[in-house]
Write a protein that binds this DNA or RNA. Structure first.
Lengths: 143, 143
DNA sequence: CGTTGACCTAGACCTGGGTCTAGCACCTAG
DNA sequence: CTAGGTGCTAGACCCAGGTCTAGGTCAACG
């Protein structure tokens, strides 16, 4: 009802994580503030929790391991005073993401090339073949 | 000696894969042509094999699962006639990589934002704090 | 001749990140 | 009262992708 207070199911829906995963993340210390519980022990997530989780989702999507998110969460949990450390962590991941981007672009280039040659190949009916082991000098000893 | 004929160790060095991984990849059918063996059963990789493996490394780095690489390898192994299928596979992965790029950029934006605020925060001595759970209305019932 | 180093196979092991199950507690509706 | 739906915990399970081990074969070196 009150929309500052969501059940785990609702949070699962809006974050795209499963309830299992939400509980896992909590166990692993990914949450930056302890999740409240209602009278009968059920989790009650605040809007802020959900926002944080949304960030977690992005971190995960960019390859940040749970342990790193957990460290960050811990710093945030501990409150102000450790901002420099948080920044360091973030910068590390930032670098990592930038590297990944470079790698991906590089790889995409390769794939684009292959795709283009196959397209040509198919359009023209067997011209240059991007991958054909027979193109090398001497595989004449095969069956 | 003959540089068209490398041992597994040499290939490991130039691809950056471990010899274990090279053997794994072979078992999993990632190689597009059967690796030759010398008189005593040792693998002898051709330059072409190494090139292919380098491609595999890029595919892996861009998140292509072993099974997909294996399918592609199989198609190549089977020889010409299935280029359309190879193209399809490549296009799928291409799409995937493009999506990943978008995601990563998105995530990088988030991180850049956080990094910037922390930098400001640190430079200015506690101004706007990018993550502070206390910023929300009413967490007054905590111990 | 012994030993060193690279290689072989088969198969066990490990990590990360989930995902699912069992068995139980609530709450609400019929 | 009973059933359904949702939640809880603890812990098992699973998959991908490696990584390592045991036990053995070679070839070359001193």
């Amino acid at each position: 009802m009150a929309d500052n207070g969501l059940s785990i199911g609702q949070v699962a829906q809006r974050t795209g994580l499963s309830v299992h995963t939400l509980r896992l993340y909590e166990r692993e210390g990914l949450l930056a503030s302890e999740v409240r519980r209602d009278g009968s022990g059920r989790r009650v997530y605040s809007a802020w929790d959900v926002e944080w989780l949304a960030n977690c989702v992005k971190f995960r999507a960019s390859g940040m391991p749970l342990t790193a998110i957990s460290r960050l969460a811990q710093l945030v949990r501990e409150g102000s005073g450790n901002e420099a450390e948080r920044l360091k962590l973030l910068r590390e991941h930032q670098r990592h993401v930038i590297e990944q981007l470079a790698q991906l672009r590089d790889c995409l280039e390769l794939i684009d090339g292959k795709v283009a040659s196959y397209e040509q190949h198919l359009a023209a009916g067997a011209s240059g073949d991007p991958w054909q082991q027979q193109l090398q000098p001497a595989p004449q000893e095969r069956g």
